[in-house]
Design a binder for these strands. Structure first.
Lengths: 229, 229
DNA sequence: GCCGCATAAATCGTATACAATAATGATCAC
DNA sequence: GTGATCATTATTGTATACGATTTATGCGGC
């Protein structure tokens, strides 16, 4: 019941949302080409609006726009992956501290619901949805801190993290982070800013170290892999 | 000789650069409407490319896109102004520290040249250009730190700062910041990361406090002001 | 049989045309 | 004279059409 019937969304917003969701849930793998005509036909709009949507996604680094070549689902490099988490490490801990000092009962309930849903999704084996909810948890904290500018950056970084995790995540089974979110919420609810900051910092570090950034991402680099479908 | 003849720029990039420059130099005041037809005629392109450019500028928060109403030069609120500088305070000091640890002779020379040009512009009374160069100084530090992701954020924040300064700057005469840049460069050149971090932090704080964020921006809020032209 | 080049197909970049929406001004009632 | 309603105008939103560039394909030479 948060951002429901906006009703006046500008056409391309719908396409952006659909494509972003598809990328987050990995229904669209990194490197996949997004043909303007095809996308337009799928959603029943012309190339004009598709192009606008692709441009917005390119701003978020979710797609890579190559001149006269087209749009492709982004394939974050190892360097980019590190940078995204370094940026998060700079932004999120302090934001969590601010959030702790502003938490309301409604905020606590909302975050608790996020965590519950996340656990449910995990139990149901839907790791894609769990990851999505996990991201929303972080974004919600930025919103609670009432820092729209930083929240926008974090939203983008979380989105990109989703792609990065899709590429470099190794031990998918052990989603240890849900416990991290539990502890974080306790600190936030208690209004313990410094603790929330520290927990967020180590949480992000855990996330980064759980990625295997030495190997190339598990994207079909070679054709043979891609054809084993 | 940095980013000269790219030659293969995608059309709208030119419009983005021109409009951004115009906004930075405040040849376009906050709140001014950017009619698609007019802009297109000025630069000899169709509305299609103008719209793409406006969308990019909107992503940087340099223009405000209102549905079915058009594009307007952004008018950052007081809250937004604070948020921008808070975000910079989170990102730039640590980035300056990283830069200090990576400085090369070429980087030092480049930054020195920026400062020199800034002083020259000040002596010539061209505060607009001085402000622009001052922004480039910050962006260059992020580039030196080899953090593309953070550099992109800082670029956007510096751009927005330019608008904010246009709105809320009070003591234009005393551009004390140039000295701050001198000290910062010395710390960077000496490879003194912690000092650079500290200097950047206080520099940003100085900038923020030099703004008058209690009053509304000096934009024609009332019609009478606007008509006294 | 393999490589390079010319031609053909596909796709993107841009311009133009039409439709939908909001702003403006005029007419009429009161 | 003031207010509201409706017609007109202007501007944005979207679709389509054309040109430019890239990619794929087929041919000839080596």
């Amino acid at each position: 019941m948060a951002r429901q019937a906006q009703k006046q969304e500008s056409g391309d917003e719908r396409i952006v949302a659909r494509l972003a969701a598809a990328i987050h849930e990995h229904r669209l793998a990194p490197g996949v080409k997004l043909n303007e005509d095809e996308v337009g036909e799928v959603y029943g709009v012309s190339r004009t609006v598709v192009r606008a949507a692709l441009q917005k996604l390119a701003h978020m680094h979710l797609v890579d726009l190559r001149r006269n070549r087209g749009a492709f689902v982004a394939q974050p490099t190892v360097k980019e992956a590190r940078e995204v988490f370094e940026a998060r490490a700079l932004l999120e801990p302090r934001t969590a501290r601010s959030a702790a000092e502003r938490m309301t009962e409604a905020d606590i309930a909302l975050l608790q619901r996020h965590i519950d849903d996340e656990h449910k999704a995990l139990d149901a084996g839907d790791t894609g949805r769990a990851l999505h909810l996990s991201g929303l948890f972080h974004i919600e904290i930025a919103r609670i801190a009432d820092q729209d500018t930083i929240a926008e950056f974090i939203t983008q970084l979380v989105s990109r993290s989703s792609l990065i995790i899709a590429l470099y995540w190794q031990r998918r089974a052990a989603l240890c982070e849900s416990h991290a979110h539990d502890a974080l919420l306790r600190a936030l609810a208690a209004g313990n800013g410094p603790l929330a900051e520290e927990l967020m910092k180590s949480h992000l570090l855990d996330l980064l170290t759980s990625l295997d950034l030495r190997a190339r991402g598990s994207v079909p680099q070679s054709l043979k892999e891609a054809l084993s479908e």
